[in-house]
Design a protein around this nucleic acid. Structure first.
Lengths: 199, 199
DNA sequence: ACTATAACGGAACCATCATTCCGGTTGTCA
DNA sequence: TGACAACCGGAATGATGGTTCCGTTATAGT
């Protein structure tokens, strides 16, 4: 969450109380959205932050802008996990799978994130998000490394990853079974070129 | 879609025009919901059916009731596929996977169904739906048979199936990649007890 | 044909939210 | 310490969409 969410160059520095309030708002929004999801109302957030809606709106021109800011934040954290995994010299498969698991864990704790992953709005976010963070590129790299090591199925495609996350988002808010989902999905990603049966 | 959606015993038979209108409504609702999803407005449906909203509401007391009726319908169709698959003596794995694929195909063509599968409301529907149709029981049977034949992973659980469908619902309305999703997921379901690597 | 009644249509109603407005505060700078 | 812009709060506004109401119309039975 960098300073210029509003994307103003920064003609004048923010006034002290404004800074304070902005922090409270972001804090409250994070909590509210992750607990109650995207349907959280602006007024709830304002109340929770101890400010008026007006104030909320001065800091974020629109609900969508607020959501977006928070989501980008989360995505950046994931992107960092991915970066770390790239430096990890251990099992390439585990490096790849580990990032997905981390992402999943983060998603369970944040209903809004889950919703964004799984529903329409995503469309809107995707380009913006994946362009900003290098998440997609890094995941692709991790996947390829696992493939080169013969651990991931050769025909797996970086484009499959958003699919997995999308499904994950849906699964999460209905069941506690996301671990199950991930397990199945990851097995699907593994290298299974070893023939098993006459078919 | 049986006669008594409104669940009245049936004190008096429905009047001729009422029957006609009900049919038009169901028809319109099916089309509208599958094209535009759950956010379709009641008035759209009414217009499409060539009746007034009032009429719509006399037949279905609530939007939710209407949706539910249509969804149950779809579920019943799936349950029939499952039943057919049970009688099929071919490859047990294909029988199981085939039903999932059929379900997926049906879901791609119906946005509302996809939404129900993937979002919160499902909670509300699930019990009602799966109790009415025997879908769940049948899928469980198909899965077990595939397991007994050594074709599905031994630790797969009937409870995993709703998870798959849930993820599917989410994936579908964002990508054309549902086939990819299913492929990965199904591979996850396969028997992979053959060790591949020293681990 | 005629009436009692079931069914219609669609305007009006109401609840829910995001967003806007503006009179009142507060921080900052001289 | 005073003045002025930057900020604040929260009531009011507007849009959306499900649901209800009621005067009108079609159907079934005589």
């Amino acid at each position: 969450m960098t300073t210029s969410d509003t994307a103003t160059g920064d003609p004048r520095p923010l006034r002290a109380d404004a800074v304070r309030n902005r922090a409270k708002i972001v804090e409250a929004a994070k909590a509210a959205f992750s607990e109650r999801g995207l349907e959280t109302q602006m007024e709830d957030i304002a109340r929770r932050a101890g400010v008026g809606v007006g104030t909320l709106y001065r800091h974020f021109p629109t609900k969508d802008a607020l959501v977006r800011a928070l989501i980008v934040d989360k995505m950046e954290r994931m992107a960092e996990h991915a970066k770390a995994a790239m430096k990890d010299d251990g099992d390439p498969w585990e490096a790849f799978a580990g990032v997905l698991r981390k992402g999943a864990e983060q998603t369970v704790r944040d209903r809004a994130l889950a919703q964004v992953f799984s529903s329409q709005p995503q469309e809107a976010y995707r380009t913006a998000l994946e362009d900003e963070t290098e998440l997609a590129a890094r995941m692709a790299w991790l996947l390829r490394r696992a493939q080169d090591a013969g651990l991931a199925r050769p025909d797996a495609d970086p484009a499959d990853i958003p699919i997995v996350m999308c499904g994950l988002g849906a699964v999460i808010h209905n069941e506690r079974n996301w671990e199950r989902y991930l397990a199945l999905m990851l097995d699907g990603f593994r290298n299974t070129t070893v023939e098993r049966l006459p078919e």
